[in-house]
Design a binder for these strands. Structure first.
Length: 258
DNA sequence: ATGGTTGTGCAACAA
């Protein structure tokens, strides 16, 4: 079984690339972020023709998340329960598999702009609420995957310039502490379960030839619960779509479970 | 060096 995450930075623009990628990478579930469209504009028909069901938490212009799955899902939850949030940032669903149900949580985590700003304060509140929610979800779903655009580079090796960017957004002690708090729920960073090339990143700024110079960050993550950890056989970042014309600034990340 | 690029939507904001 394969599960993937991809921040597409506008599904309207990126739909052809998503269809193209799914044709070559027929994953069982794909969590999308930054749809930038409302559910009424979601391309259900094109994705159904490609063999995918979709559940959507849309928003006009900003944010927006969805799950694409080969088989229908159950128990869909939009946003973090109990958190008053006008921004469409999470969608959870349960996927039945031959090995049993898997709880899938997809998040477009708050960017946070810069430490000391209102947006950073919102990021930290949001991360606290997410942590409490994921803890509750784990209590009833042993087999759980939390993935998405975390907007956090967990360690220095996840940044192209850890010294120059120390303490700046994606790199702060506070953000990294929240990432560690998620790991402390006995979640595991699937990418780091394996040997990986140095300077492996999942996002590159459109500006300053960021991708060509591999000046990126690893901020898109797939965390798996303890019950799933030993079934994971691979986790990779697919840079192929980033090389194509009019790409998303993020690359898809794929986890393979036995 | 406060630059540079992309998306939404048509000015300015978010990333």
């Amino acid at each position: 079984m394969q599960i993937a995450t991809w921040n597409v930075n506008s599904l309207s623009v990126r739909l052809p690339q998503v269809l193209d990628w799914l044709a070559s990478n027929p994953v069982d579930a794909l969590g999308l972020q930054e749809l930038k469209l409302v559910e009424e504009r979601f391309p259900f028909a094109a994705l159904e023709a490609a063999g995918y069901h979709a559940v959507v938490h849309g928003q006009k212009t900003y944010n927006g998340v969805a799950w694409l799955t080969r088989s229908p899902v159950l128990e869909v939850v939009r946003n973090i329960p109990g958190l008053a949030d006008e921004q469409a940032r999470t969608i959870a669903a349960t996927l039945d598999t031959p090995q049993g149900p898997v709880r899938l949580i997809n998040g477009y985590f708050v960017n946070g702009q810069a430490p000391g700003t209102d947006k950073f304060a919102y990021k930290m509140r949001w991360l606290s609420a997410l942590h409490a929610w994921v803890a509750a979800e784990l209590a009833c779903h042993q087999r759980l995957v939390l993935l998405g655009d975390f907007n956090i580079a967990p360690q220095d090796r996840d940044s192209h310039d850890p010294e120059g960017l120390r303490g700046s957004i994606h790199h702060t002690v506070e953000e990294r502490g929240q990432f560690q708090a998620l790991l402390d729920l006995d979640l595991h960073d699937a990418f780091r379960l394996f040997e990986q090339p140095e300077r492996s990143f999942s996002w590159w700024d459109y500006r300053m030839l960021g991708f060509q110079k591999n000046r990126g960050l690893r901020i898109d993550h797939i965390l798996v619960s303890a019950a799933l950890r030993h079934t994971v056989t691979a986790c990779t970042i697919d840079r192929t779509p980033r090389k194509k014309p009019q790409p998303s600034d993020h690359a898809p990340v794929v986890v393979t479970l036995g």
